[in-house]
Design a protein around this nucleic acid. Sequence first.
DNA 1: CCTTATTTCGAACAGGTGTTCAAGTTAAGA
DNA 2: TCTTAACTTGAACACCTGTTCGAAATAAGG
Lengths: 216, 216
Amino acid sequence: MPALQDIDAKRQRAPSQRALATRKRVFDAAERVFADRGFDGATIRDIAAEAGEPVGTIHHHGGGKEVLFHRTVARRAEPLSQARRAALETLKRDGTVTAETLLAAFFRPIFDLSRDDPRWRDYARLVSFVSADERWRSISAACFDPTAELFLTELLALRPTAHRAEVAEAFVFSVSAMLALLTSQGRIAALGGEMRAADAQIDHLIRFCAAGLAPA
Amino acid sequence: MPALQDIDAKRQRAPSQRALATRKRVFDAAERVFADRGFDGATIRDIAAEAGEPVGTIHHHGGGKEVLFHRTVARRAEPLSQARRAALETLKRDGTVTAETLLAAFFRPIFDLSRDDPRWRDYARLVSFVSADERWRSISAACFDPTAELFLTELLALRPTAHRAEVAEAFVFSVSAMLALLTSQGRIAALGGEMRAADAQIDHLIRFCAAGLAPA
DNA sequence: CCTTATTTCGAACAGGTGTTCAAGTTAAGA
DNA sequence: TCTTAACTTGAACACCTGTTCGAAATAAGG
């Protein structure tokens, strides 16, 4: 995989407002198309059409399909991780760290962001593609593992007798359940009949995983 | 999506042993390649090379890429569902139905089959591609939802006060955790350091989900 | 204001893509 | 044994893929 380096690595002039706006259009379009069709199902021309830009522009700002994919995932990873870390800091400051509050701190930010901005919903679907495929392991390692590590450490402190590997398993189960809630509304609807309110679903997700994380 | 009809719909002669062996080679190869690269990442020529057959043969037995994909998923769905249903029947006969034993009956068959035959590991990864993408909703609806329905009914009987939608959510969380255990060993290893034995992981998965399913 | 780095643009390229097809081979069923 | 349905084979087809590239337009920095 091509290395991901700073998009403005050897630049000699600041980018114009116009260029910045174009770049934003390119990444927003890439996010939508990659979220809809995955890496292999998406084409540069799909993304170009979605962005309303010519194909050359996608390559210019994206740096090639694989780098564009990586950058599209990375773009929202930092804001998301910061929101998660901020929620964690609040817990630690207030001394209210439990399995339930830890999971809430980790899960809630992406649901909160999705409520306000539909682009975060696309991003969530994109992340689920990244998480599902070992091929993108290095992307999740770079974008999400450092913050996951922080939460894992806290969970481990709550269960001093458990092995790290066991807590890591429980954490992966929890994250997969979170992604399922974000992306498998169709399956839930098919099995469950009527749909529940998003808030009820999120509360349920947190209770479900917290119960699983509790000592046996 | 092209309709999936019986592979031997309007046949006038029984297929030869040779043809049957070729067909098996085609589907085994398709299973491996689709599991590795997903639907869009796989190519007919990849599958042909993996099977050691010319491209025309893949199309002859597979019926086109999309139908081949559907048939490849469907091929092992019935044996898997039967194993799950048999385990469920045993529980009901013995009167040992609990959240924990129900989940064990649903989860264990694919892990047991994977232990004996690596092709079931490929199949599990293929199923996780199908489950992750709304595009294949109709495939999981046809192949997996009927049996899921059976287990959902039993889970609902265990929690008479819960709404069906809530139990459906918990079931989807559980299935996603099962698929994560089958496909995300890389992520578990990255977070957890050393790896635990498969049996310990499966027991943990069942305890994790059973705890989440228990009444609040 | 100039200079020129950067961006915009889309035609062109080499190499795939799924699918078709016609000719030759095999073997089921009478 | 004979007929012919079924299978095997790979070349050919039309279209699509990511990427390149050079010329024109834009605007940052002096």
